[in-house]
Design a protein around this nucleic acid. Sequence first.
RNA 1: GGCUGCGUAGCAAAAUGGUUAUGCAGUGGCCUGCAAAGCCAUCUACGGCGGUUCGAUUCCGCCCGCAGCCUCCA
Length: 485
Amino acid sequence: MLKIYNTLTRKKEPFQPRVAGKVGMYVCGMTVYDYCHIGHARVMVVFDTVARYFRYQGYELTYVRNITDIDDKIIQRAIENGEDYGKLTERFIDAMHEDERALAVLPPDLEPRATRSIDDIIAMIKTLVDKDLAYVGANGDVFYAVNKFKDYGRLSGKNLDDLQAGERVDVDLAKRNPMDFVLWKMAKANEPAWDSPWGLGRPGWHIECSAMATCCLGNHFDIHGGGMDLQFPHHENEIAQSEGATGEKFVNLWMHNGFVRVDDEKMSKSLGNFFTVREVLKKYRPEIIRFFILTSHYRSPLNYSDESLNDAKAGLDRFYIALRDALPDDKIPENFIVLDDYKVRFEQAMDDDFNTPEALAVLFGLANELNKAKKHKPENKIALAATLKYLGSLLGILQNGPDGWLKGNVTLNVHNLLTATHVDAPELIEGSGVSEEIVDQQIQDRIAAKKAKDWALADKIRNDLKDQGVILEDSPDGTTSWRRE
RNA sequence: GGCUGCGUAGCAAAAUGGUUAUGCAGUGGCCUGCAAAGCCAUCUACGGCGGUUCGAUUCCGCCCGCAGCCUCCA
């Protein structure tokens, strides 16, 4: 029985789809004026893992993740760059998709964009104005009248009095209440603008998501997700807008992922302590990033450091060493059956609010069993390895060829991402450092030295390679395999 | 100030009212020409103070510390 923590009730709840067998899930995506950082990567990976698990459980999932492609920061950046704002957002949408592919994040089913949803946005604002939940302010902007919505603050556990007591924003004289937020913003000269009943302008951020979510999934749907920081005011405002406009319940279950931190501080643009995905990819392969994200529970904070990433690499190496030489062609055989014991434990972990650290612990147990089977029970080897690789696929990991992984190879599309060239065909390229040919040649020389019992030469070859980051491993049958540190 | 949430061994990170988490690192052993990898064993835990209980890291209260939100933010 799948249980999910609901921010609305602050409890884990048994998951009950609105319609049997179907799930509608909306996740707040990126505002596209810059490259994705590791915090964005976390959202993508977390909800991708959630989506994979729903599908694995047999649900018919509609996964929507929007793109905010019009907003103050976008306009500002476009001006700074002297670039058309549409060109700018196209560029960063492409970049985001590249990052996504690198991290083995499957594309959402629908990816609505604010600028393509203007009619729906205007319609929703109009309804809110007609219902007297919104008003035109002194400056012509349209605002939501927060005190007209009685449940305002329910999601974030705040109430209007407390909020006003801690007010940090300059009071906007155009608003009736300082907490009121903008639905439609009048355009300044030369800003991108759309026609509306209130004049030329553009939508506020919060209304975009309400309109896009409702449009793609209906007035009432199952799950809405996003980062913790969106809880207030963004998601609170979405509830006020959508429920205000439709009179129906908006969302059953709210999921919020924790932050990525650097030195125990939130990673963010404003603090400037962020690492972009492509920056990190210069140093670590994408599966390491994904694995790193999965090593902590999605609601916990995740501290980013070289040490954590190195640990993640070491953990993955352990899996790939176990998988090495375990499956014919490194493929899961057809009509294989997942080992029930591990499957059950894996599902128990995932059913408990997507407990990926626990699920990984199950996989480590499996790797241990596989290592033992290789030596003592070869007849079990394939079933164990296939189960490991299969369960790994549900988390979006362990799908590389073990030998290639251990030799530090990386796919071409990831490699090219670093130079921002668009490439779709994944081709393997060699890991950096001493070439495979040289390593293979050295291994042959060393085997000859070993035959001649010239241990000094054999050890010298091994040490020299070690200095270049290549580790040799002799197996009992006289062959030598190798991997990069 | 208000509202959330967190505090687990050297590091990372789960579960749990009484029993091995797990990974990395350390130590000892097996294996190996020696290593590496693997296997086996093993050392480091539950912020502090009270309460409930036969028994609490786990439940409750208080305190201390940390983070987030209350402005745009994943």
